[in-house]
């Protein structure tokens, strides 16, 4: 199986119309791809600040509920459960990881759009619409899990205002959720283009930008899952 290399950003001038008629770029790489990597670098600092704050405020809340430790009388007047739901979050983590798999398959499908598909397997793997839908739906499922998690936390008495844990937890995971939401909208926009005129190898660079963003959001979740949910 050979892949068109356009998605790897090597053909700036053939990948999209913007640079047509212009001198080739100095590095031969696509402008947008350099910009998105710089953006991802910037996002590292954004999430580093959020995660640092969460860790700094860990175990400093003066009232419950707490993430890992149940609070029982007489310490708490009413018993408070350990609030993080590891099984549910493990499931949503798995969903997000699988969405990354769907995303790489979507990109591969766009790159290979022009190649003949002989078997059913190749036809399935080569359907960009299928994999983009899959990625967006898995992303939306993750958001659903998050909505469920947030609602149940509120029912158990944890809101943004309750304590330091609530403030830093909801802000951190909320920022991540907002990134996933933007990603889903981005994927849906790509799908709209796919339905309108079909995405082909020359669009691979644009799909790749969405993919890089999507995987980065996934990677951030990998860190959050370990640091926030698993480490007690």
């Amino acid at each position: 199986m050979t892949h068109a290399s356009a998605a790897h950003g090597t053909h700036a001038h053939s990948a999209h119309d913007d640079t047509h008629g212009h001198p080739p770029t100095s590095t031969g790489l696509d402008n947008k791809k350099i910009a998105i990597w710089a953006f991802i670098g910037s996002e590292c600092m954004l999430f580093a600040s959020l995660i640092s704050t969460y860790l700094i405020y860990k175990r400093r809340s003066v009232v419950g509920p707490y993430p890992h430790d149940a609070c029982l009388p007489p310490l708490c007047s009413t018993p408070l459960p350990a609030i993080l739901d590891i099984p549910i979050t493990s499931a949503s983590t798995f969903v997000l990881l699988m969405s990354s798999l769907a995303m790489v398959l979507a990109l591969a499908a766009v790159e290979m759009k022009d190649q003949p598909k002989r078997t059913t397997g190749e036809r399935i793997l080569g359907s960009s619409k299928l994999w983009l839908w899959m990625t967006a739906l898995l992303g939306a499922t993750f958001l659903g899990f998050q909505a469920y998690e947030f609602t149940s936390f509120v029912h158990e008495g944890l809101t943004l205002r309750t304590n330091l844990f609530g403030s830093s937890f909801f802000t951190l995971t909320g920022f991540h959720g907002a990134h996933v939401t933007v990603g889903v909208l981005w994927l849906l926009s790509l799908l709209a283009i796919d339905y309108r005129r079909g995405l082909g190898p020359k669009d691979a660079i644009n799909v790749d930008l969405a993919a890089l963003y999507w995987h980065f959001v996934d990677v951030v979740w990998i860190v959050i899952f370990t640091l926030v949910y698993l480490i007690k």
Binding site: T53, Y57, S61, V62, L160, L164, S167, T171
Partner: peptide, 21 residues
């Protein structure tokens, strides 16, 4: 963002009474 949330939505990032640093 923390400051905005504290001011507009009542989070506790900078609320010393809630244990903030």
């Amino acid at each position: 963002v923390f400051l905005q949330f504290d001011r507009f939505f009542g989070t506790t990032f900078y609320a010393i009474g809630a244990g903030a640093d």
